[in-house]
């Protein structure tokens, strides 16, 4: 874990998202208990923890994707730039345009590669003409390190790509909407080491424009790409702090056992 980036200074202290006393219930199951987290602007925050501890659940609270699950109930306060996103006046559709999401399993639409990336810009009317849209599609595919592989077959179906290519397509699709926050749920779990490195590079680049939240099962990945790390265990936020500190000097014994591989 002697990675250069791990030592890099955290260059931002402005909070993009502040979560306070968040509780999530699935019916009678209490999945998230009393979680307080600050997501810094223009930085990468990693969520780590054993399977089933509630990382995805909490991530989905941040753009109200949990609204699509009938039995799910969220309590507490989540502020995006000081505004409560669970306020009744907030439109979840607009919120999700600001807080984009990349899912654990690649889920390209059954449309062409071009249409997949253009989906967000089209529904949000981000472009005025075809040339601008072409430009956005190209930029986003380049950022997602996919352009060279697909530039000759933009009209081929997105579902015809390999798993790793599909995931990068989904990333391109998410950043094409120009969100302010990008939530990524294990974005590399379907990728080979080379594609993983490319996505990590992309995340590092994205951090200059967005704030990024990434769920990962790889300690190395968390250490490489993130500035802040949150460790979840059984629905509790056990420890939250700067990535360097969490990995070199954890305060809670549970964190230490997890990162050294004793629980999980």
């Amino acid at each position: 874990m002697k990675d250069m980036r791990m030592e890099s200074r955290v260059d931002s202290t402005v909070n993009k998202i502040e979560a306070r006393k968040v509780q999530v219930y699935y019916g009678a199951t209490h999945a998230i208990k009393d979680v307080d987290v600050d997501i810094a602007d223009r930085a990468v925050t990693a969520f780590i923890g054993p399977s089933g501890c509630g990382k995805s659940t909490f991530l989905r609270c941040l753009n109200r994707m949990n609204d699509t699950i009938a039995i799910c109930r969220v309590e507490g306060q989540i502020l995006l730039e000081g505004e409560d996103i669970y306020d009744r006046r907030v439109d979840p559709v607009q919120l999700r345009a600001k807080v984009g999401m990349v899912f654990q399993k690649p889920n390209p639409f059954p449309k062409s590669i071009y249409d997949n990336v253009a989906y967000g810009p089209r529904i949000h009317g981000l472009t005025r003409n075809k040339a601008e849209l072409d430009q956005i599609v190209e930029d986003c595919l380049r950022k997602a390190a996919l352009w060279n592989e697909v530039k000759d077959r933009l009209s081929a179906p997105g579902t015809g790509l390999s798993g790793g290519q599909q995931q990068r397509l989904c990333i391109a699709r998410a950043i094409a909407t120009q969100p302010e926050v990008l939530l990524m749920d294990e974005p590399c779990s379907a990728l080979d080491p080379i594609a993983t490195a490319q996505v990590e590079e992309l995340i590092d680049e994205l951090r200059h424009q967005f704030s990024v939240v990434i769920v990962t099962h790889s300690m190395q990945q968390a250490a490489r790409v993130s500035q802040h790390t949150a460790f979840f265990h059984l629905g509790h936020l056990v420890e939250f702090g700067e990535t360097g500190q969490i990995f070199t000097n954890p305060k809670d014994p549970r964190t230490e056992s997890y990162i050294t591989g004793r629980i999980g």
Binding site: M65, V93, K98, G100, F109, A174
Partner: peptide, 12 residues
């Protein structure tokens, strides 16, 4: 997952 993908991009 297709619905999630679309809602996640802010589609109605």
């Amino acid at each position: 997952s297709l619905r999630d993908g679309s809602y996640g991009l802010g589609a109605t």
